[in-house]
Every structure is written in C-alpha cells, then in structure tokens.
C-alpha cells in the first residue's frame, strides 16, 4: 500500500500531464464550429489589439502600392461619375443612397490554410452584423461570419464553407462561388445551368440575389469551363480579382436588408 502511494506521489505529474493533454485535445477536437468561432472572437479582444499594431506597422510598408491602387480607383470612379452624371436617374440615386458601405481595416488574414478567416476592425457598434458582404476596390472578399462589438470575423471566399451567389456578366444564370482549398487566386462557380453561354475570359459578378452583396460587384474572370454530365450543370473555374494575400482596407455592405425578403428566404 505504502509503495503504491509512493509510486503515485512520485509520478503525480503524469496525472497533470494527462489532464492538460485531455483538456487540449478537447479544445482541439471537441469544439464544434460555433464554439470555434466563439473562441476566435473572444480571442479577438486580446489578439485584435496586437494584430492592429502589426497592421499599423505593415500599412506603412504597403503605402506605395496602396496609393497606386487608390489613384487607379479614383480615376475609374471619376470616369464612371462622368458617364453616370449624363444619365442620372432619380430612382437610381434613391436606391443607391440606401446602400451604406462601412470602411474597415483588415487586421488579420490568412490564405494558406484550408479554412481561412479574416479579422476586421469594425463590429456591431459600427453597424456590422453577420451576413453582410465584404469587398474591396478590386472585388468580392467574403461575408461577415461573426460580429463582435468592435471586431468581426469574415468568412472569405478562401474558405470551404463560403458560398456566394454570382452570375456571368451578360446572362442571368446564377451559380455559387465556392472554394476547395489550394490555390488562393482561384475559386469555382458551381451549379451554373448547362445552357449558360460562358467561355474563358468572361467576367463573373455578384448576382444581388442575396442581401449580402449588391448586384454587379466584380468577382473574377473565367479561366475554364467544365461540364458536369450527371447533374447537367457547369463547373466554372474563376480567377479572382482580389489578391487575398494583399488585403488592407475593405468595405462592408451594411445596407439594411428588406425584412420581408429576409423572412421569406429564412423560411426555406
């Protein structure tokens, strides 16, 4: 009996080891996706501050490229302004004024993992809630997955759970933009109707069928088209416009969605 006690006392740290490892493994495998996200957002309170520092420092390094991009965007917007002011319609302006874009800074980002997440520095207190679309001057980035009070986690296109309703420019056929891992510069448009006229080089934009994005936000260009004989749909490889590894400022589409539409869609 004594020797057994001795043995237990001498090896008591083994129990601590087993306890800690069990705890870690529960964290690793026991958390379901929602708890995982909760861990992510609660962690954001702490890590958000640090990531913000790093983003601050890094933004200086990227100023030149950023400037160039903004100048280009400026030029493009001016051009559009000119052409639009010619054909200004009152109705159109009314509709646009409902769309409010919140400017947010990307403070953490990844592209190399199987499921990537982006953290931005705007949250519920800035009017950002779950389900809002996120894009930048180049195109679609992702959808807000979880909004904390001051930070939000965005599910980017580069996540296996991401699915965004898109269409081919010039046709009304829609498909869903998904990602199967690997190449961070391309994604796949699935469930495109068989008869859709689409070929390499065509532009893909958002469909506007979900409340996340307004219509016609650029997504990418078609790289190749594959026919799926079983389901009579097309599988379209898309080269994304947005270089996800180089994200600094993004817009969150915080347009109030129509409650009636939400209710109808929610009932599905």
């Amino acid at each position: 009996m004594r020797s057994l006690l001795d043995f237990l006392v001498r090896h008591a740290h083994v129990f601590l080891f087993i306890f800690l490892e069990t705890l870690s493994l529960i964290l690793l495998f026991g958390l379901n996706d929602n708890q995982r996200i909760a861990f992510l957002t609660s962690a954001n309170r702490l890590s958000g501050t640090f990531f913000e520092w790093r983003a601050d420092a890094e933004s200086y390094l990227g100023l030149k490229g950023e400037n160039e991009r903004l100048l280009k965007e400026n030029a493009l917007l001016r051009e559009r302004l000119l052409s639009l002011s010619d054909s200004l319609e009152l109705e159109r302006v009314k509709m646009l004024s409902d769309e409010v874009f919140v400017l947010a800074r990307v403070i953490d980002n990844s592209v190399r993992k199987d499921d990537n997440y982006i953290t931005i520095d705007k949250g519920r207190s800035d009017g950002v809630v779950q389900g809002m679309g996120v894009f930048d001057s180049r195109g679609v980035v992702g959808v807000v997955n979880m909004a904390g009070s001051h930070y939000s986690v965005v599910l980017p296109v580069l996540n296996s759970r991401s699915s965004i309703s898109c269409k081919v420019v010039g046709s009304q056929s829609i498909g869903f933009l998904e990602w199967r891992g690997g190449d961070p510069y391309s994604a796949i448009l699935v469930d495109v109707p068989y008869h859709t006229a689409v070929s390499a080089g065509d532009t893909i934009v958002t469909s506007g069928f979900s409340s996340a994005f307004p219509e016609n936000i650029p997504v990418g260009t078609v790289r190749s088209v594959e026919q799926h004989r079983m389901s009579y749909t097309l599988k379209v490889s898309v080269d994304l416009f947005v270089d996800m590894s180089d994200l600094r400022w993004v817009y969150v589409n915080s347009r109030k969605s129509d409650p009636e539409l939400e209710e109808l869609v929610g009932k599905h």
């Binding site: 705890l23 870690s24 690793l28 495998f29 962690a43 997440y117």
Partner: peptide, 18 residues
Amino acid sequence: VFTATPGLNATSSTLAAM
C-alpha cells in the same frame, strides 16, 4: 489564442514540457 487553433499548440507544447 492568437492563431485561432484551439488546443493545437497547447497539446504539442505540453508534450514537449513533459
């Protein structure tokens, strides 16, 4: 906490400490 990988580093570094 920082890398949003709950338990992954904890498991391996506890093993290393053991």
